[in-house]
Design a binder for these strands. Structure first.
Length: 274
DNA sequence: ATGGTGGCTGTGCCA
């Protein structure tokens, strides 16, 4: 454990959110409004669909946040936003080391004694698609890298759009989705491989069945609550051993011109002032 | 009803 503080190090309240914004360009006003209300310490964003140079850092600064960016044009792209009063992040990492990938899907940084990793996992389209084979290769590389990260950081949080519904309780119609992409045994095995590294699915452990985070734009999915739980916040055992909560904030999903995902918020104690 | 909507691009791709 390279960054573990002394056992006597104090833990302070800290909150981390995950939100697939489906275009930061379109959603920036909503993100800024939401930050001003929720004031999370750190936020992992997914699907920026922007290059880094196009992100309006001034608007984020006006909301009190700085940004670490790993964007690309049109597709994918991730960011870590952090409150201006936090210690400056260190050990910033983009993408999965030793995995050749043209798609920008990972960004990680350390805030004091806390490691934060934010990911936008491959969607995969369908089980017989080339994109699904890419998803499984990507997940295998991701799990291998997380094993090393987990060994190096006792206090670790993994946020993201995992594009995996871990169990049938996370699906509005499990029969209809059985063996479909996002719900297949191979994808769920990869999710369980992450948990086996010593991580806790915080929303899954505490939220009742039907705590969805994504609803299809089509067919009035949100109004009818036809959703999936595919956005997750996993925390290491040491963080899970203390008091924490995790919830979905469905409010922004009901706003005009929303993202198809709602933010997830974890509040707990971390070895960093937050 | 293999549909529907949304973002970005460029007359389709991706989710």
């Amino acid at each position: 454990m390279t960054d573990t503080p002394s056992p006597a190090a104090a833990h302070a309240p800290f909150s981390i959110a995950s939100w697939n914004v489906n275009s930061l360009n379109v959603r920036l006003p909503q993100v800024c409004d939401w930050l001003a209300t929720e004031r999370p310490s750190v936020v992992g964003l997914q699907e920026l669909k922007q290059v880094n140079e196009a992100v309006n850092l001034d608007a984020l600064a006006a909301a009190g946040y700085r940004a670490l960016l790993n964007g690309q044009k049109t597709y994918n792209g991730v960011a870590l936003l952090y409150r201006q009063d936090l210690p400056e992040p260190t050990d910033v990492c983009v993408d999965i080391p030793q995995f050749d990938d043209p798609q920008r899907r990972v960004i990680a940084a350390s805030f004091g004694g806390l490691r934060v990793i934010n990911a936008y996992v491959v969607n995969g389209e369908a089980l017989d698609s080339d994109k699904f084979a890419y998803k499984l290769r990507w997940l295998a590389a991701f799990v291998d890298w997380l094993r090393a990260e987990r060994a190096a950081h006792e206090h670790l949080v993994l946020t993201g759009d995992f594009n995996i519904a871990p169990t049938d309780a996370d699906v509005y119609d499990p029969a209809a989705w059985q063996n479909s992409v996002l719900c297949s045994p191979a994808e769920r095995q990869a999710f369980n491989d992450l948990l086996a590294l010593g991580l806790v699915d915080t929303l899954g452990r505490t939220a009742p069945p039907g705590s969805f985070t994504w609803w299809d734009y089509r067919a009035a999915g949100f109004r009818r609550n036809l959703g999936l739980r595919i956005d997750h916040i996993l925390v290491s055992d040491a963080l899970a051993a203390q008091a924490w909560t995790c919830r979905v904030d469905k409010t922004p999903r009901g706003w005009e011109r929303p993202s198809d995902h709602a933010p997830v918020i974890w509040q707990g104690m971390a070895p960093v002032p937050g």
